[in-house]
Amino acid sequence: MKSLSIRRRRNLGILLLLSIVVIVIDRLLSVSLYPVAFVSGWLLFSLVALLAAYNIRKKLPFLPLGSSSTWLQFHIYGGLLSGVVFVVHIAGRVPNGGFEVVLSALFLGVFFSGVIGLLLSRWIPPRLTTRARDSQEVLFERIPIFVRRIRDEVEAMVLECGSQAESTVVPAFYASRLKSFFERPRNFWSHVLHLQRPRLKLLREIQSQEGYLSEVEKSVMGDMVERVKQKDDLDYQYALQALLKYWLFVHIPLTSGLLVFVVFHLVLVYSFAGGIR
């Protein structure tokens, strides 16, 4: 953790330094009547292209292009630096041309989705680890299998209970209240927001049934409570891991659209710039 903290401080320091350098050079170029938008524009384009190249790097692991960790660090801090360069590039103005508004919106979409992804990647793993102390970590792709397995186990218990206890309290409660819970991942946003209210509510409902249960049924219901907790933990894993995967559904497609618009922007700038380059 100490090395991680040192690295983060170092990288943040470099980011801060580069940001200051960019702003100062922009100011100095402006004093020299240099077309600063061209300089900051090319810097921004280079950054965006390098950041986008991270996705390509992941697809070419056999090439000696540096470790993925290094690329990720560059992606994170380079992305943050691109935000600074973007503000410098637009000179702090709010774009008011139609195309420029779309271009800026695309960039901001990519930037902030990246920032959100960064925050998620920093925020979710510790939560998953914390929760996994009481349960276990699972692979995202296998969660449906485990959900099915739990559901099968619970249904088997309910059937057995129904035949042994000569009572329909447990099967009826399962059919009315628990069946939908075990069918698929539930309470997505509650898990994302770290709310345990649905879980506790369900457990309270189960507990409220105890007065009507025989000893056998109580035993079955006790096992069922454990399965409910296990399923809820799986739902928690699913919700958070899904977040870690689905933010890229915004970040990467927006990046591709951004690159297309950026190239067109370059063509336009060099066609209409009036010689300020």
Partner: peptide, 8 residues
């Protein structure tokens, strides 16, 4: 500024 760039 004079060090960084000349007037274009």
């Amino acid at each position: 500024a004079r060090l960084v760039a000349n007037v274009p």
